[in-house]
């Protein structure tokens, strides 16, 4: 299967503009960028995709073995860039995709013009003096919450959803679909997201990098954003006056402005 269908790649915006590749994080799919895309589309060629296992990606391409490491996700990002022949890419990674972006940029730095790490955390679990904000027990609680909530997912509905993307008459049944995931995939993705440790990858970044954090974010607290900024040489840090982990939804104008200002081109 080609990567465009595998990752549900969507290309929009200004065809002649610089490429902005938006990578969604743990929990939902590319719809999370819906308020930011119109703000970037005039200037940039905006490329969106769903990670394998999320949104309308090809779930059959997902295996627990392959997707038990963030490297596989970084590999997919690089494949998308290669297949679409994207160059001088401004890669924007939200949440766990910030680290996926770091891994991809470290493997093929020549492919990327700039990196934007949106509410990043290189390690969620506390470790010695390092404060990620969470304990191992907290992550187990998250796994319990995932287990108790199959938002918009059921084995019965799955084939309908997969076979009928974008059919409005299914709208009612597709409630919560932006954040639906096969429970097993969600469990594996949660583990790889919250138990990975990418602190040592930050110092290897050579692509110009912007760190964007929220003033109050329970998932990626400010001290973690500061840590990322300190570790990535020459990076810039912007703190948005926003609450929560998804500023592209709660503060889309400020998020788009931060991306655009750093990306240049307008």
């Amino acid at each position: 299967m080609d990567v465009v269908s595998r990752n549900n790649v969507v290309v929009t915006g200004n065809e002649a503009g610089p490429v902005v590749l938006l990578a969604h994080g743990f929990g939902c799919d590319q719809n999370l960028w819906r308020l930011v895309v119109p703000l970037l589309a005039e200037t940039y060629r905006v490329v969106l995709f769903d990670h394998v296992g999320a949104g309308l990606s090809d779930v059959a391409a997902w295996t627990a073995e392959r997707y038990s490491s963030l490297d596989a996700y970084a590999d997919d990002v690089l494949t998308i860039c290669r297949e679409l022949d994207l160059r001088d890419v401004v890669l924007v990674g939200h949440s766990v995709s910030a680290m996926i972006a770091v891994l991809a940029a470290n493997r093929e730095p020549e492919r990327f013009a700039k990196l934007v790490l949106l509410t990043p955390s290189p390690r969620y679990v506390d470790d010695g003096d390092y404060r990620g904000g969470f304990s191992r027990a907290d992550i187990d609680e998250l796994l319990d919450a995932l287990e108790a909530n199959y938002l918009g997912w059921s084995a019965v509905m799955a084939p309908v959803i997969m076979d009928n993307p974008g059919r409005p008459e299914l709208g009612q049944e597709l409630t919560n679909s932006f954040c639906r995931t096969d429970p097993e995939i969600a469990r594996v993705f949660a583990r790889v997201t919250f138990l990975s440790d990418n602190r040592s990858d930050l110092a290897k970044v050579t692509v110009p990098t912007l760190v964007v954090q929220c003033a109050r974010d329970a998932i990626a607290p400010r001290e973690v954003g500061q840590f990322v900024h300190d570790q990535v040489r020459g990076s810039e840090l912007v703190t948005l006056d926003a609450v929560g982990h998804c500023p592209q939804l709660s503060a889309p104008e400020a998020t788009a402005a931060a991306i655009a200002e750093f990306a240049g081109g307008r």
Partner: peptide
């Protein structure tokens, strides 16, 4: 742990 779920699933869905 429930808070993580809230921030990564519940809050974005509520927005959308």
């Amino acid at each position: 742990g429930g808070r993580i779920y809230y921030e990564t699933h519940f809050a974005p869905l509520l927005h959308m």
